[in-house]
């Protein structure tokens, strides 16, 4: 039972990390790529840390593992937020599929 759980979490984490990397290559613009990088990347790391916690089954490793997960949950969105804001302000274009941009609209309104 424990082995099955460990294998499941390991493979799940690896699959999510792979999705993050492929999404990083394949999606059309910076902002959609950030979706893949933050969400799938965090879940991938979480899966592997949980597998490690089950495998070792020790309180000290458990606490440190929870610490690593919390660290990723805090830093991944902050990093994406900072990069996204800096990129938008420095004029990185949105992709051609984009249907609405209310930020640009409000800036234009306030200039008038």
């Amino acid at each position: 039972m424990r082995e099955v759980l460990i294998c499941f979490f390991l493979l799940f984490g690896a699959a999510m990390t792979l999705v993050a990397a492929i999404g990083c290559l394949r999606l059309p613009d910076l902002y959609t790529r950030m979706h893949a990088a933050t969400k799938s990347g965090t879940v991938g790391i979480m899966g592997i840390v949980i597998a490690m916690m089950i495998h070792v089954g020790d309180a000290s490793v458990g606490f440190r593992g929870i610490l690593v997960i919390l660290f990723f949950l805090l830093t991944a969105p902050v990093a994406a937020h900072m990069i996204g804001r800096a990129a938008y302000r420095s004029g990185v274009p949105l992709c051609g599929k984009t249907c609405v941009d209310e930020w640009r609209k409000q800036e234009l309104d306030s200039e008038e």
Partner: peptide
């Protein structure tokens, strides 16, 4: 920024 995000993903893969 594209490169920075890709490097971020690469770093998390290295952690894994």
């Amino acid at each position: 920024p594209d490169r920075v995000i890709a490097l971020d993903v690469a770093a998390s893969i290295v952690v894994a």
